[in-house]
Amino acid sequence: MFILIMLASTNEKYKFSLNNISHSFNASQVESIEVLRNINFNVYEHEFLALIGPSGCGKSTLLNIMSRLITPNYGEVLLDGRPLRYITTKIGYVSQADSLLPWRNLIDNVAIGLEIKGVGKRERRKKAKELIARAGLEGFEKSYPNELSGGMRKRADIIKVLAIDPEIIFMDEPFSALDVFTRQMLQDYILDIWQEIHKTIIFITHDLTEAITLADRILLMTARPATIKSEYNINLPRPRSSFDIMFEPQFIEIHKTIWNDLKEEIAITGEGDNQNF
């Protein structure tokens, strides 16, 4: 008992803690896929944490567990030291898939979180308009998602989450479908936002350059069943710029180190895939 209480109190200095998270999906009646195995890590307040791992290893599943969209088979998620049992708007989740509602124009999509909260139409539109302008999307307030480019939609996804002013922001490979130029532009956009609002951000990517550019710390996940393989602190100076940072000697060095680590996991995934066929 005492030990449990002590554990709980030590956890309080973390914004977020994952204790012994394991999860499997039932592929069929008899078969199940073990996706996560005994995941443990903590996230500090105001930290920019990047999670990186091979494709299909369970990154999205992990975020779904951390946001309580999925209840893990085993283990516990703590938010501000307390077990997370329900979905909460303290967490803003920019999911991997497009999440704009196709029948709503940009301004009403961005304002949806406020609308759900019960904020009046004038006020929520005003706030949405400000965010839209700051994201460089002004003039498109009345456009529907299918009239926006991929990069514009992703920005809209992000400001939609910013509108509800969450304490923690999850981003699941937000830029993976975009071209290099748009991606760099949006990385700078994220760096600017983070510099300004300084929220806790958990960012999933399988682009190592992106992870180093953005994060304070990188956690490397193994191939399925995923565990945390290693951890790297990124002490590059801030404010950062996605373009300039690539030429810092320290950047190149850390990139090389993590890449060697990551390479093994990618090789494992490749083999695994071949065995399936």
Binding site: L101, G113, I116, I164
Partner: peptide
């Protein structure tokens, strides 16, 4: 279901899920 999840994550209750999605 991804759109349903996205509004749930924004705090929507069942009724709001139905009317908004």
């Amino acid at each position: 279901y991804r759109l349903v999840n996205s509004v749930r994550l924004m705090g929507a209750n069942e009724f709001q899920v139905i009317t908004k999605v």
